[in-house]
């Protein structure tokens, strides 16, 4: 079974995000970039499927600038077999990303398409759902367990009230939630091997897609600063303040 995993290059989770002085966006100059953490989980799941003998080939795809090759190489080091970079320096919104991924799916014909449930830069949580819609196939979002059974897959989903199990016919789109697995580190020998794995570059046009942003960013602002806490000297003072200042009791 062929598995396609989509990964996105995003600002590193641990970087303190700074807003550009002109409020047009987040400052990315000289900032550490990394693979979207949920995509890392998607890659790990694909690798585990391969280790179980279920997946036979893992293709990893990313949409973004040339530097997104780094994230593809990371996925290759973790165990993916080959990579595809859809290179563009333009802003790619969810629907366009889904259309581009659909193009790759049509070329590659994978049985399973794995994505992170959302990227930590825009937090849209749309691409997986849109991709399934465009493909007309089933979707298992917020997956915390994935069991492939013959020509279908059972996905345990994290929902508000608890867990929900659904069964999907393959091919299907699955988006990974935090508890699906714990991704491994890239081992140094595998990183060296990954350099020799094939990485193909496509343009947006190659897939017959035209990027059409449908959302316009008006302004990006820092959240309001939290006020400093105060110390109270007694329980009475605390009660007094909760009553009269905070007005919560």
């Amino acid at each position: 079974m062929k598995v396609l995993v989509a990964v996105k290059r995003v600002i590193d989770y641990n970087v303190k995000v700074r807003v550009k002085p002109d409020n047009s966006g987040v400052d990315l100059a000289n900032v550490k970039m990394a693979m979207n953490p949920f995509d890392e989980i998607a890659v790990e799941e694909a690798v585990r499927l391969k280790e179980k003998g279920i997946a036979t080939e893992i293709v990893v795809v990313s949409i973004g600038p040339k530097a997104a090759q780094e994230q593809i190489r990371t996925a290759l080091a973790l165990g993916a077999d080959r990579g595809i970079l859809i290179e563009t320096d333009e802003e790619v919104q969810s629907l366009d990303a889904a259309k581009l991924l659909k193009g790759v799916v049509e070329k590659e014909a994978p049985q399973l398409i794995l994505l992170g449930k959302q990227s930590i830069d825009t937090d849209n949580n749309q691409t997986g759902q849109m991709l399934a819609g465009l493909l007309g196939c089933g979707q298992g979002t917020f997956a915390s367990r994935v069991d492939v059974e013959g020509d279908s897959v059972v996905v345990e989903r994290e929902i508000d009230g608890g867990l929900m199990d659904i069964k999907l016919k393959l091919p299907a789109v699955i988006t990974a939630d935090l508890r699906l697995n714990e991704p491994r580190y890239a081992s140094l020998p595998n990183i060296m091997k990954a350099k020799k794995k094939p990485l193909e570059t496509l343009s947006v046009g190659d897939l017959g897609v035209e990027l059409k942003p449908r959302l316009k960013t008006l302004k990006v602002e820092e959240p309001p600063k939290r006020q400093a806490g105060i110390k109270v000297s007694s329980v009475d003072e605390l009660v007094e303040k909760l009553k009269n200042e905070a007005k919560v009791i």
Binding site: N14, A186, L188
Partner: peptide
């Protein structure tokens, strides 16, 4: 650094190794 790692493996000093791919991984290591 990769080259040095290779050398260390060939010399028998090192059996395996990992490298951080993100700040999160660096912190966890």
């Amino acid at each position: 650094s990769m080259g040095l790692f290779e050398k260390a493996v060939e010399a028998g000093w090192v059996v395996d190794g990992v490298i951080s791919q993100s700040e999160t991984q660096a912190r966890n290591l």
